[in-house]
Design a protein around this nucleic acid. Structure first.
Lengths: 130, 130, 130, 130
DNA sequence: GTGGTCTAGACCACG
DNA sequence: GTGGTCTAGACCACC
């Protein structure tokens, strides 16, 4: 489990980490009971500060996604996969909502939005536009 | 020209102001050469501090959207409408890109994204979902 | 006597006006006893605010360059030409001093300064560089 | 890196700071990747308000001279030295241009200008005039 | 510890 | 009346 961090997109690093952990659990890349990388390990592999990873893990524990196993580290909670799968689209939906609210307030049409979504999707996946 | 400020959405107030001014210019609500509300006026109408408005206006000057007419206030620059129209979709596109990159990295399908966009649009515009 | 105003160079308009009047007197374009344009006339010809011209004229009176002739306006004082000729290079020297002080503090060489002066002069006069 | 502030020369403090930082980078006194003094540190060493320093640093970020490293401070951008060196003479040239334009419009000769420059240089550097 | 935001209020230059 | 500068101090997010 290696996190891709973008230090320039305005999203707090600890949040990028916790989101990626949740996505990995939803994916099945991290299984129930499996240990997440130690704080130090994750910090070096993602080239971020130790405290930042600790903060992300603390949040994930508070959400019941990770549980602490005495002496050995943090592991994926038994109900985490279900929780993360449920949350998966919600996390994305929440961000979409902010963007679209602004777009709508400023006269962007449904056409324009869908076209933007389509073209960005294609650009990112390398799919040729139809 | 009255700005709607949301003090709880995490976006700095000065940025909300400058974005709304740009949108107004893109819309044609503010025409070339027209004065924007004075900092004091805008500050009271938006219920924020004078300096906060001044900061937004300063940013807009730095971007060439507003020009200062000494002693009389700030006016819309002659090339601002074009600039703002170009930027309008770009601002949205940029934010969409981050979301979609995350979605793609985590196995969300094209179907799911488009469906999310459609349902959010309908929810926000009050259109009845099919 | 028509003033060329540059509203974007940071120098106050009233100061541009008073300097240009002084230069005109030093030149002989304005003679002793001759009336300067009325405040309103100058304001329209230079496309600036009436108060701004009034401020410039007030400064010039305070310096003894202009004198008020009851009921008819402002005229060039009898000792103004001498005063203005004396001041002519001083006004320029004063501004040069600020620039050069900064340049020197930051390691610009005598060579570089003279070369800049020469090239700017040539560019402005259209003289071909040697 | 300590800034010399002159509160009486009409140049805004934040601009004096940002100019001196740029000069320091052009000089090589500040190297790529190196941190500039924290806003609090610079504020105390220059005896100005924290916000004033913050404003200067904000401008420098907007110009791409400094980059923010989250939680750790501001560092010199990788292309800043080149940018600052290019700008160094340009800042001086721009100011010279205004002066010389006025001088030319008012019949100052090339001789007179060069002589002024020479005498000012000598006065400022303490060199004995020939 | 770092920078960033916001408020409040004073003062100035300009028109 | 306008914007611009500066100060002072509070609070927050991040590392």
């Amino acid at each position: 489990m290696i996190c891709q961090i973008d230090t320039n997109n305005g999203i707090p690093i600890y949040e990028q980490i916790s989101r990626q952990v949740k996505f990995a659990i939803a994916n099945g890349s991290l299984l129930v009971g499996e240990h997440v990388p130690s704080v130090r390990e994750m910090a070096t592999s993602a080239a971020v500060n130790v405290n930042t990873v600790a903060r992300a893990y603390r949040d994930l524990q508070a959400q019941g996604v990770l549980v602490s196993i005495r002496g050995t580290g943090l592991a994926v909670a038994s109900d985490a996969p279900e929780k993360c799968r449920r949350e998966r689209l919600e996390m994305i939906r929440e961000r979409l909502r902010y963007i679209m609210r602004e777009a709508i307030q400023n006269g962007v049409t449904s056409e324009e939005i869908h076209s933007l979504v389509r073209s960005e999707w294609d650009a990112l996946t390398g799919e040729p536009p139809p």
